[in-house]
Design a protein around this nucleic acid. Sequence first.
DNA 1: ATGCCGCGTGGGAGCGGTCCCACGGGGTGA
DNA 2: TCACCCCGTGGGACCGCTCCCACGCGGCAT
Lengths: 359, 359
Amino acid sequence: MSPAEQPQPRSTADVRRPTLNAVDVRRPTLNAVAARAGVGRGTVSRVINGSPKVSDRSRAAVERAIAELGYVPDRVARSLATRRTDTVALVVPDAENRLFSEPYFSGIIRGVSAGLTGAGMQLLLVLTGDAWERDRLAGYLAAQRVDGVLMMAVHGDDTLPDRLEELAVPTVLAGRRGDREGLGHVRADNRGGARLAVRHLLAAGRRSVATITGPLDMDVARARLDGYREALREAGLTVEEDLVAQGDFTEEGGRAAMGELLRRRPDLDAVFAASDVMASGAVPALRTAGRRVPGDVALIGFDDSVVARHIDPPLTSVRQPLEEMGRAMAALLLEEIAQRGSGKRGVVLPTELVVRESA
Amino acid sequence: MSPAEQPQPRSTADVRRPTLNAVDVRRPTLNAVAARAGVGRGTVSRVINGSPKVSDRSRAAVERAIAELGYVPDRVARSLATRRTDTVALVVPDAENRLFSEPYFSGIIRGVSAGLTGAGMQLLLVLTGDAWERDRLAGYLAAQRVDGVLMMAVHGDDTLPDRLEELAVPTVLAGRRGDREGLGHVRADNRGGARLAVRHLLAAGRRSVATITGPLDMDVARARLDGYREALREAGLTVEEDLVAQGDFTEEGGRAAMGELLRRRPDLDAVFAASDVMASGAVPALRTAGRRVPGDVALIGFDDSVVARHIDPPLTSVRQPLEEMGRAMAALLLEEIAQRGSGKRGVVLPTELVVRESA
DNA sequence: ATGCCGCGTGGGAGCGGTCCCACGGGGTGA
DNA sequence: TCACCCCGTGGGACCGCTCCCACGCGGCAT
């Protein structure tokens, strides 16, 4: 059960497989193309890679041969020679159910995919399970020779990014671990988004605005809380700590936090929840306490997720530009791959308030 | 814009990249291990692959050397030699927003991932865009030398699976194209699930049970409609065609179909929608018509998706064993890879009725 | 005319594994 | 004692590309 003392190869993966009866459908090789075109291998390689140092005659001959043979270069062989795989791993913690069912993951992933395939790169999806597996991951990724790694949902104490850095594997994170993240990362303007939400509540005349935060060891959660505070200060209000309750980004956590807030401050007239899911937990808690939404208490969430549209009442929420975030991650990673060090920036993308009926 | 006449290589992907400044962190090679252990390369290879024909002395020496050097075999080099990549591509049509935001995709993918990594295989995620891209895909996948392909959301007229079969690439589908799918595939017992739903409605005393179907060129949609019919016949009722309206698996489609049904049969007292999303569209249509759910009209959906839990009232729905389906797909594909032909079966997994408040 | 430069060009030498053939040595049977 | 086996073992020959060096050839300056 416990990991072996030595990092000995795990047998499951390495045991020789029984006679893979590979139906050997061999595709034409670069050699075949060279022969057919009556040129050397070098020339074919040059044509394929778009080198300018090829005569028009040779190039034409090669291109014809390629077309006739239906040749497609073998990426594996190329990778072995170039020490480059044109492959990027997307690492997602398996535990984060949340990520999958929300548009968060899907939006980012399609942005990533678009940005990557446009550059001829492919995406390796890696769901990591337990901590041990995650520990092995760095070596594993190095063995894959992936050109880079994208990581979602990194926690503050996650060491994987550091280990990747040691191994000189270009890495870009979705979100950051702390406020001075050393690695390249892309995130939404969480603070600004929270500010938008709270301003909206204040503009509607609400005066006792509470907030349900995420776990405060997460940067997103802190940033959204900061935004909440800033908006209050902007308006000349003082931040009252008993209007702040901590949740954990789950529905149940939202319910509990809402109950707590109502107990502490029966006079509250608005709530900014740091996620839609927590907001969806807050709604029944409010109902139980006999408060109408938005009549008695206005409510705003964050993420603009599926539940926001289907909850009753439809939830006003802060939207993150997910697909763009994915695109930005891809771009940043490609930069870093092309030139080390150049992609180690933090990119912040603007958020937007989507007004529905809850506030 | 239009595809070139000849399959000439697309430049974007093939242009030589500018001096990849690969920080050459070379990992130890099998050769290094052999030298250190004082044995030949062949012996190291045998140890790694768990061959029994190695003396205990050699094995121990090699294992020590591996541990000391932190050696991890290079998959790329191995692939080149074995003509096997231990990689499987998961092909998902990019257009299917639906897939991503619903637990459908996420459930299946994690099952797939679990089943695959357990066997030491990795997952290449391929989102396909337009038809042209999809056309190129077969060749592309062959060039990747993926060991197999998993496809989600195949339409009846999709030719990609056939082309993969021509190329002798093991393939497994999520769902089937028609009722005699030639390829290996895994699906939920859609008919049975629909039957469960309709039986539940009938058992509750409903007598005019309508249904909102999916697009009937899709096998899932037909299967669910069949189940609806069967349940009615079982109960000795005749299937009335004006109680059947076609939707398209979208919310808006559900709304329209519901409107249509109410117009045709104001007396209906129950609806089985072939997806939760369509059911979520049906709800407002019912409200508009002044019907209470479930008071006047009972409603059941399919998929047990996120919206089912958050809609008002919470939706009774049919759940598919998504993770198991993913696992089954992985298993089937591994079978097919190990022995061609053995994995070309159809696996059907049972569904389950999740009773909430709408029926 | 001779030298020199530079442009294509061919092809050897890897990249890091696997596969398999041939070989040495100890045990067995005649 | 000698032939015969069989078990481990070493290492050459690939897998299909890229990289780069060296070479031939035509054109220009001397």
